[in-house]
Design a protein around this nucleic acid. Structure first.
Lengths: 119, 119
DNA sequence: TCCTTATATGCGCATATACGGTTGTATTTT
DNA sequence: AAAATACAACCGTATATGCGCATATAAGGA
């Protein structure tokens, strides 16, 4: 029960749905998510963790990078098609499209990049 | 997008999952929900509204009673089997079983009943 | 070892949400 | 008409959540 609540809680936030959306495109590191959604590194990291804790993501480490991707098996037992449904539900959305465009230009550079942009 | 967030938010609460569970048994008025879950009338009413606003419930009026029931068509477009999945995910849960037992004994008497219990 | 970089985390603030108690409203019963 | 009722709305309070800032951790390279 707790787990089910946690899963839905993870999905009940716009930022996290947007993250799922770009991870449906491809595996990303934290700084790519940050760029694609134009959010802070803190927010990217924390929301990725939340989705991970809820069982929606896989984590793979590669040197300095934490690479997150959709865990297709994760929710299979009770919610087999949930992620597919989410994708469909977001389709055609303005923000979601922009995120995907920004993702194409995103590179694996981290908060340092963000700091420079600020100045 | 907002609607999707709202839908998941509605499902990300234990009380509301418990409400869905008993409504899967049968249509209920507010006071029956209140008895089945052993919660206050305020809480029952508010959480039913939330589920209704999110598109999971139908509302039918019969005299004094507001009768809520699962809206099978509600989420069909994007989340066709969501409610079925929720049922499966809750199956075997302790609380959920107790709720169903109490529902059997519940009658259509409202807050007046609760007020008497308090004294 | 020291420095840079990518990510994670503690903290404080603002806001959102849940709850109980009370009140309001409409409808039925007496 | 008055009382009882079923439900919804309002109010104050406690807790949860999200965010940014600053800092900690961890990995790799000079």
């Amino acid at each position: 029960m707790r787990d089910v609540v946690k899963a839905f809680k993870a999905l009940s936030d716009e930022t996290r749905l947007r993250i799922l959306n770009i991870l449906l495109e491809r595996e990303c590191c934290v700084c790519e998510v940050m760029q694609a959604l134009a959010i802070s590194q803190t927010s990217a990291s924390r929301n990725l963790s939340a989705l991970y804790d809820a069982g929606f993501l896989k984590l793979r480490k590669d040197g300095l990078w934490s690479l997150y991707s959709i865990d297709q098996e994760g929710m299979k037992e009770y919610f087999p098609d949930l992620i597919k449904s989410v994708r469909k539900a977001l389709e055609g959305n303005e923000v979601v499209t922009v995120d995907r465009e920004r993702l194409k230009k995103a590179a694996r550079v981290g908060p340092g990049c963000a700091r420079q942009q600020r100045k």
